[in-house]
Amino acid sequence: MRRSRKKRSARISPRSSLRADIWLMRHLQVALASLGRLIRTPLSTLMTTLVIGIALALPSGLYLLLGNVEALSGNWDGAASISLFLTQKASDEQARKLAAQLQNDPAIDQVKWVSKAEALDEFRQLSGFSGVVETLKENPLPSLLIVEPNSQHTEPAQAEALLTRLKKHREVEFAQLDLQWVKRFHAITEIAQRGIIILASLLGMSVLLIVGNTIRLEIQNRHAEIEITKLIGGTNAFIRRPFLYNGAWYGLFGGISAWLMVSISLLLLDNPVEQLAGLYQSGFQLSGINFGTLLILLGGSTLLGLAGSWIAVGRHLNEIEPS
């Protein structure tokens, strides 16, 4: 019995693999034929592709812009820094040791130590009371440690937890973090993210309508061909296949054009942004679309084109019957 089952499986597997090869070859032929049909009408294909590209480039560009703004805010001095005011009894040596200890903390990116003398000199220069400062018998200002958390601890909840932990050091008398600024910034970015999602959804629906209307017009232009195909026994699945590939090609080309539009826009803005950053002694540079984001853009645009063509074909193909 076991031998007979093995013989049956051996007989079936070549047939199934052959059917799979034939299925793949048919789809490849239809895909290439659909691509050739689009290439033969370059003007209409280009216009449809550019419209889809513009619809996809807007949310993609805003998404990149938001990411660059968040990266820029991470480079601002004091964006999420914690100020640790040490006690008057803490010596410079104790402050230096505490700074070295905090520098080894994995949650902290950088620690800047401002000694008592440096704090007094800065106060003398900025306050305008240099004459009064000279009359002081001793320095009333404490040492200061400016702690900058790393990128994983700039969220309000994480920054507040780090602040609570730093307060426990016996050399620290007072710790300060501008949580209101951090919370406001993250609230703004969250609103921007949701706005981009809403805009991307609306423009995604517009891509569906664009592709659907284009496929509908193509179905009408090939009305007689579809009737003849049905008369000779062609199924709806067979007739639907080239239109679905048309929609997928439209979506893919639209995603590529959106990527080109965003990349060219960033290239044009790169030099002015670099010059502006140089005026503020910053090495900030605009970041473009990475490989993962590009795959999501192309995959999403292709799926949108496929969905738009599926809706259009499903609605209008059943209305065509041979008379």
Rank of each mutant, 00 (worst) to 15 (best):
R3D: 15
S4M: 14
R5V: 08
K7I: 09
P14D: 08
R19N: 13
S34G: 11
S34T: 10
L35W: 09
L35G: 15
L35M: 14
L38Q: 14
P42W: 12
L43P: 07
T45G: 12
T49N: 09
V51G: 07
Y63F: 14
L65I: 07
G67A: 15
N68Y: 05
N68V: 15
A71K: 14
G74L: 12
D77T: 14
I82A: 08
S83M: 12
F85R: 06
L86V: 13
L86Y: 12
L86Q: 08
A90M: 10
Q94H: 00
R96L: 13
P106M: 15
P106L: 14
A107R: 15
I108Y: 05
V114T: 09
S115L: 11
S115W: 12
S115V: 06
K116Q: 14
K116W: 08
L120D: 08
D121G: 09
L126N: 15
S127V: 05
S130H: 12
E138Q: 06
E138C: 02
P140M: 01
L141D: 00
I146R: 01
P149T: 00
N150D: 03
S151M: 00
Q152Y: 04
P156Q: 02
Q158A: 04
A159K: 00
L162R: 02
L163R: 01
T164F: 04
T164K: 12
H169P: 01
R170M: 11
E171D: 08
L177V: 07
L179E: 04
L179P: 01
K183D: 14
R184L: 07
F185G: 02
H186K: 10
H186N: 14
T189Y: 00
A192M: 15
Q193V: 10
S206E: 12
L208H: 04
L208A: 05
L209D: 11
T214E: 02
I215H: 01
Q220K: 09
I226D: 00
I228K: 06
I228A: 10
T229H: 07
G233N: 11
G233H: 10
F238K: 11
F238P: 06
R240A: 13
R241I: 06
L244F: 12
G247F: 01
Y250C: 04
I256E: 00
L260Y: 10
M261P: 01
S263K: 05
S265K: 04
P272L: 01
V273T: 02
A277E: 02
G283I: 03
G283K: 05
G283F: 07
F284R: 02
S287L: 08
F291P: 13
L294G: 15
I296S: 14
I296N: 11
S301H: 09
L303C: 10
L306K: 09
R315K: 11
L317A: 01
E321K: 08
